[in-house]
Design a binder for these strands. Structure first.
Length: 383
RNA sequence: UGGGGUGUAGCCAAGCGGUAAGGCAACAGACUUUGACUCUGUCAUUCCCUGGUUCAAGUCCAGGUACCCCAG
């Protein structure tokens, strides 16, 4: 088979490419460039501004060395404009509205498993492969997305929004092996990136002081931090969009009591609501509305498991179908910090059914905003 | 001005004559292809100041000083 492998300059995609070649496929590699710090005005909090070589280019060099070591051709393709238009614009719009988007899920949906697949087909490669830890299962010519064997690295969560139609064109060579085996293979091949640290942070942008990064695009706007239990002002925030539900760090609320966690925000009034201690009822919900559901198979169960964030354990939920792409999930056991803007991904055993955006969260029938408004109707007290 | 109380880290706060607990915050590291959570580590040679008693003082004594409360 002719396969184009997305080579990132990391170990995972390198070993993925090697495995496919070893299996006798006709393999070529492509390096995607999706972020340009200077083009995208990425200045504040950018640790690499003064570096001679930016991390994207250094990854490209690693990809070059890897491709050469494996004896594979390497293409280079830019999706900088696509990334900005389809991923980053929505990302910023969501933050601006006080929500917490998941850019990497959008990146997979629009870039890696759309633009990149189109590119591959144009180049004459009907199949693409990546170093994702996930599995494509073919049952009677129906293709399913499933969790990787290495559950501790499983990345199916990030793939829940990819078009169902592309599943039959994807190969995940790391589906059945563990991270440590990947590292072992890389060192046996003497690949220079065998010990390279796993990349974290927003894909293509990297690990950053997140608030400083956002300040490049969403200017700071200070306002009150309010204790939702008594409407007392506890401090000042730098802009509600810089914080997310369940966040503890960066609030700068010292003194008695605590720790404090973000439980909600009022974008219009520029208020950040916090509550004391992790068990606080304000953090919990018992149901949520999911929109933009992307289905990856025909299964529509009434109960399944859900992850509300990457690496979270599976939570059993009950599904109520509203429309084809809108569902209500309920979980009477209560779950903490289900965050609007993030992705809910549905699983039945290890099969990923699909996922959608958390639109709103509820507790005993009341939405988070209704609850917050009820609690803050009384006037806010200055300390 | 009289009477009472309190001054220990950025913030709360233990300590009661034997060599400065703990929490919050902050910072650093680990974990992690989002944002987070979590975990681990660091953070007062010094207790408002000055004297004194004592082998030994944050702790006792004297004076000063700052803040708080009640009187006026």
């Amino acid at each position: 088979m002719k396969i184009l492998v997305g080579l990132s300059g990391g170990v995972d995609s390198a070993v993925a490419a090697y495995l496919l070649k070893a299996q006798g496929h006709e393999v070529a590699c492509a390096f995607m460039r999706n972020w340009d710090s200077s083009l995208n005005n990425d200045i504040l909090g950018n640790p690499n501004l003064n570096n001679v070589i930016c991390p994207q280019e250094s990854d490209y060099n690693d990809a070059l060395i890897t491709a050469e070591a494996l004896g594979l051709p390497l293409y280079r393709v830019d999706f900088i404009k696509e990334y900005w238009d389809e991923v980053f614009t929505t990302f910023l719009k969501e933050y601006d509205q006080g929500r917490t988007p998941n850019p990497d899920i959008l990146c997979n949906k629009y870039i890696k498993f759309n633009s990149f697949i189109n590119y591959a087909q144009k180049m004459g490669y009907p199949y693409v492969a990546t170093g994702h830890y996930a599995k494509i299962r073919n049952k009677d010519n129906h293709f399913y997305l499933a969790k990787a064997d290495d559950l501790s690295k499983d990345q199916s969560y990030f793939l829940a929004q990819i078009p169902q139609s592309v599943l039959s064109h994807i190969i995940f060579p790391l589906a059945n092996i563990t991270k440590s085996e990947v590292r072992r293979i890389a060192s046996e091949l003497n690949l220079n990136i065998a010990k390279k640290k796993d990349s974290t942070g927003i894909c293509f942008i990297g690990e950053r002081d997140f608030r400083e990064f956002l300040k490049n695009y969403l200017p700071a706007k200070t306002g009150d931090i309010i204790n939702i239990d008594n409407n007392e002002v506890l401090g000042q925030h730098q802009g509600v969009m810089y914080y997310t539900i369940g966040q503890r760090k960066g609030l700068n609320i010292g003194g008695p009591g605590g720790p404090w966690f973000v439980v909600g925000k009022d974008v219009k009034q520029n208020l950040l609501f916090v509550a004391e201690n992790q068990e606080n009822h304000w953090l919990y919900s018992d149901s949520c509305l999911i929109t933009d559901v992307n289905w990856l198979c025909m299964l529509r169960p009434l109960e399944c498991n859900v992850k509300f964030r990457y690496r979270q354990k599976d939570h059993p939920v009950i599904i109520k179908y509203i429309t084809e792409d809108k569902i209500m999930l309920s979980y009477p056991q209560m779950i903490s910090s289900v965050t609007p803007g993030q992705q809910a991904v549905l699983y039945l055993d290890d099969v990923c059914l699909g996922g959608g955006v958390i639109m709103d969260v509820y507790n005993q029938g009341k939405s988070l905003n209704e609850r917050l408004e009820g609690a803050t109707n009384v006037s806010i007290r200055k300390k």
